[in-house]
Structure formats: structure tokens, C-alpha cells
Simulated scan of single mutants.
Amino acid sequence: MTSYGTATESKISEVVAACERSGRSSIIALAGVPGTGKSFVASIAAQRFTNEPLLVREIQFHQSFSYEEFIEGLRFDGSSGVIVVPGIFLEWNQRAIEDPDRRYVLLIEELTRANLPAVLGELMTYLEHRDRPFVTIYSRQPVRVAKNLTLLATYNPTDRSAIELDSALIRRLRIIGVPPDVNQLSEMLASTGLDNRVIKKLGELFESCRAQFEEQYEDLMPFGHGLFADVRNEIPDLHRLWVERIVHLLRRPLIEPHPFTDVIEKNYPWRDPSYAVPSPMPKKEATTAEPGIDELAPGQADNLQNQG
């Protein structure tokens, strides 16, 4: 089994433990700002919980995601008739029912992007009452939620839809915070060979934001440690990251800058254009001296000696 470092392994273990403890009655939800590794941690935890990657199915909610896609809906068949088609949840739930000796996970990315009450429907109640069947809207067939099926999810707590979650929905979640983590940042970047001085400076960026915005840090930090996952070289990677991503998270047209902007700009030296291009290699000085025999290409030495 691959190990991902002490801090990352601790978070993965926390999620697995929550699935063990509450996966039969609640949605296990990882909440964190973009770039905190929620998806990575959730995916690894799901595979470890099931002991089999093929027993994990991943989907992503979005604004137009519907009950018909998730539970069941109507589709036209080839003869212009209408048939009832099970959605993603009912398909995966049925597989779990037919295979009761193994654990199944449905991993939902961006949980709060969809209209949850509309998408989940009856599931809102019957996730925690799995011994009681519910009747679906279209097929009118009784369905029980499999006891060996766990719903694992990720979401950004600052999304408007997440802020508007009602207490009935929150009560059905077991929320695990996934904040920006300097230790996970260090583990991630040390494996890439990035200079320790640079890693330390990036860690200080996060610590400075935490120190100045202690109560708001975990929920309002505009990005997490995962934003730096692709950094391999200080120059020009960190300048490009600023120009192409970070500045757009802080300053957007027609709206106020992010509250952390001043602190981040102060602690991110790679904003400066001097970090855009690596320093050129020094050129060798030209020489007019004739090469010695040891410096000649193969064959040239023999020719020179023969000419003598």
C-alpha cells in the first residue's frame, strides 16, 4: 500500500474511520476550500474502505443534475415509447444489494452544486432508515438502501449553495474539515525535489494568512496547498502560477479584492517578473588558441600527425 506522508495519511485514516462509524446512516462529507486535496483524500479513503477500487464509483454534481439522473427517470425507447430507467444511485445500490459481503462507495464530488433536496428526494430520509423501503416516483417500486453502501462526498463550504444548506440536510452529513495544511504541503513538494527554502517560504505564506485571519482562515483562504501540486521548479513555475491562477482568485473585475489579498501579495515574492524566466547559463569564453591533440575530434589527431 502506497504511503503519502504522515499528515496526509492521518487525514485519510480520519475519513476511513468516519465511513466505518457512520457510513450506514449519513453522508460522509469532506469540506474545504479549493485545492486542499479533498478529492484525492476521498478517493484514496474510499479505495481503502472497500479494499477494491472497482467497488468505488465517482460522479460529480452540477447545477443541472437532477433526480432523474440520480434516482430514476423516464427515457424514450427505440419505438417512441417511454420507459423507466434507474439512475446512478439505484444502479450502484442494486449492485451493493446483490453483493452484501463487500463494501461499496458512491463518491460524489461537488455535493452542494446540485439542488440537493430535489436530487436526493426520498433518500434524505431513508439513508438513515435502511431497514425501511421507499417507493420511487416513476416505477413505484419499493427500494431499500443497501446497508453496505456508503455515500462519500466533497464540497466547498464557501459555495453559495453550501451556505444555503438547511439544517435538515446538514443533520444528514458527517462533515470532516479539510483545511489548507502546511504539513501536507511540505510532504507533497518534498517528493518533487523542490528546494527546502522555497517550501518553507510557501508554508510561511499560509501561516501568515492564518495569523492575520485566525477565525476565517479555514473557510475563506482562497486556495489550499494542492494548488502547488504541479510546481517542480521555483523559476518559472511559481511566477506562472501567480499570473495564470492565483491573481484571478484574488482580484476579479467589478468585485472587491479577496480579504486576504494584501497578506498573500506581501508573502508571495514570485509575483515579480524577475521570476518569470530562469537565469541564462554563462557562456564559455571564446579562444583563438589552436586545439591540442587531446581536444581534437576522433581521426583528426592522426591526420595532423601524418601531415607533420
Score class of each variant (00 low, 15 high):
L173R: 08
A18K: 00
T287Y: 03
K200E: 13
A45P: 04
L220K: 12
F70D: 02
Y138F: 05
K266G: 04
L304C: 05
H258F: 03
S139I: 06
H129Q: 07
G32R: 00
I264D: 05
T125P: 07
L189F: 09
D272Y: 09
E9Q: 12
R102M: 14
M281R: 11
R132K: 15
I28S: 08
K283F: 13
R240E: 06
D237M: 05
V143N: 11
I163W: 11
T2W: 08
V263A: 09
T125W: 14
A17Q: 03
N267R: 13
R271H: 08
R232E: 14
P282S: 07
E52A: 14
L249M: 14
R48V: 07
N148I: 05
K266P: 00
R132L: 12
Y126G: 01
E110V: 05
S13H: 07
D77Y: 12
I97A: 00
L241S: 03
R232Q: 14
L116H: 09
S208K: 14
C209A: 10
R172M: 06
R245Y: 09
P236M: 10
L205N: 04
I264A: 02
I175W: 00
L241A: 00
T125F: 15
P179V: 11
A114D: 01
I163G: 01
R171F: 04
I163V: 14
V15H: 00
Q94P: 09
A31P: 00
G203F: 10
F70S: 03
E72V: 11
T158Q: 09
E244C: 08
L55V: 03
N115T: 01
P86H: 05
Y138T: 03
R144M: 12
Q47I: 04
L202V: 14
S39L: 11
D131E: 15
I59R: 07
T158D: 12
A146S: 15
P53L: 07
F89C: 03
D181E: 13
T36K: 10
V198K: 12
E218G: 04
I235W: 01
G177Q: 08
P236I: 05
I170F: 11
L106C: 04
C19W: 02
A118S: 15
P100F: 08
S22F: 14
A297K: 14
R174C: 10
D219Q: 15
D230Q: 13
N183I: 01
F40H: 03
S26R: 14
P280H: 07
I71D: 00
R171Y: 02
P100S: 10
F76G: 02
G308D: 05
V277H: 08
S13G: 12
P259N: 01
A168T: 11
D272C: 05
P179T: 12
G81R: 06
D294L: 13
I255W: 09
H62V: 08
E14S: 09
V135P: 04
S43V: 04
G81L: 07
R174K: 10
D294V: 14
E91M: 13
E244F: 10
I235G: 02
E207D: 15
I176H: 06
V84D: 08
V15F: 07
L238H: 03
S22M: 09
V33W: 03
